[in-house]
């Protein structure tokens, strides 16, 4: 009697348990992940909605109000040309986040693609891994110089200076940072593909692409997630390095990395110039890391039994 009632409730609950609900329940259990999600959403909201409230043009120069500390008009103070730092940090965040996320997605896609193919199909493994080694061995800076020299003017003519440079930078960062993901994914795929359930899937006559998508990918998702979270951080940093070398965005185009770099000399005079962009980069990277951690835990099929 009691048993029947229990079974009934369990059966009644079962239909509500959509895959997303399961995912969400497990995600919520990860406290750091929830905190990361909240912080990340807050940063994204602030960066995109903030300029609607704080309506100062980030490129407005007011030389009389230079090097000011925090005030009501300029909550983050001003820089040595009188730019409003809050407006600059918000505008910089839009670019940095866009570059970081898009470049990360591109490198993740490339890395996973190469890694899964190399791990799953033995015939092309050698070829793809040597290609990965080749990319790893390429001296990055000369390569970037050549790419930018060859395509800058073409892209600028086709998409305008800002979009053209955006596409170029995302592309450049994406194709020069996929190699580590590829290596990690390949290793995981090699480990997974010899397990019984893959053999079972194969013997049931499943198409190879179905096996990869349904069985291999979910099992290697955890390592992909980890490289994704690290990827955003390194993409933001690479972008600032490129901007410094003059290969990135024009200098009147604030990004977090550039704001940080420009502010270093003024550390004693106006510490807020370094503090806020630095905090923004750290919080973003940290929150994305926790987010990735939680997502991995929630998606990992090996935790299903728990």
């Amino acid at each position: 009697m009691t048993d029947a009632a229990l079974t009934a409730t369990a059966a009644a609950q079962a239909p509500i348990d959509t895959p997303f609900a399961v995912f969400w329940r497990k995600f919520r259990a990860h406290k750091g992940g929830v905190a990361g999600l909240i912080v990340f959403v807050l940063i994204v909201l602030a960066v995109y909605l903030g300029p609607l409230i704080h309506r100062i043009d980030p490129n407005k120069i007011d030389i009389r109000a230079k090097n000011q500390g925090p005030s009501f008009a300029h909550p983050f103070g001003t820089d040595n040309l009188g730019h409003d730092m809050l407006a600059q940090v918000l505008a910089g965040g839009q670019i940095s986040l866009a570059v970081g996320i898009t470049a990360m997605l591109l490198s993740l896609f490339l890395g996973t693609f190469v890694g899964v193919l190399a791990g799953y199909f033995r015939r092309i493994d050698g070829l793809l891994m040597r290609l990965t080694d080749l990319f790893l061995a390429l001296p990055l800076l000369p390569l970037l110089l050549v790419i930018i020299m060859l395509f800058r003017d073409t892209l600028r003519a086709a998409f305008g200076p800002e979009t053209g440079i955006f596409i170029l930078i995302v592309f450049v960062i994406g194709i020069t940072s996929w190699m580590h993901t590829a290596r990690i994914v390949r290793g995981d795929v090699l480990a997974v593909k010899n397990q019984e359930f893959i053999v079972a899937a194969k013997s049931s006559g499943m198409y190879e692409h179905r096996i990869i998508l349904r069985h291999i990918l979910p099992n290697v998702l955890s390592s992909i997630m980890v490289s994704a979270t690290l990827g955003i951080a390194s993409a933001i940093i690479t972008e600032s390095a490129l901007s410094f070398l003059g290969l990135g965005f024009p200098s009147d185009f604030p990004t977090w990395g550039r704001l940080l770099f420009d502010g270093v000399n003024f550390l004693q005079l106006t510490p807020s110039r370094v503090f806020w962009p630095g905090l923004a980069i750290s919080l973003t990277v940290l929150s994305v890391n926790y987010l990735g951690d939680a997502v991995r835990d929630a998606l990992d099929p090996r935790t299903l039994s728990r």
Partner: peptide
């Protein structure tokens, strides 16, 4: 560059800035 861009904007001239190593 930023200052000059601002000054020229006042006479209806726009500039794209570029800095090279």
């Amino acid at each position: 560059q930023a200052l000059v861009k601002d000054m020229w904007a006042q006479i209806g001239v726009s500039v794209e800035l570029r800095n090279i190593s």
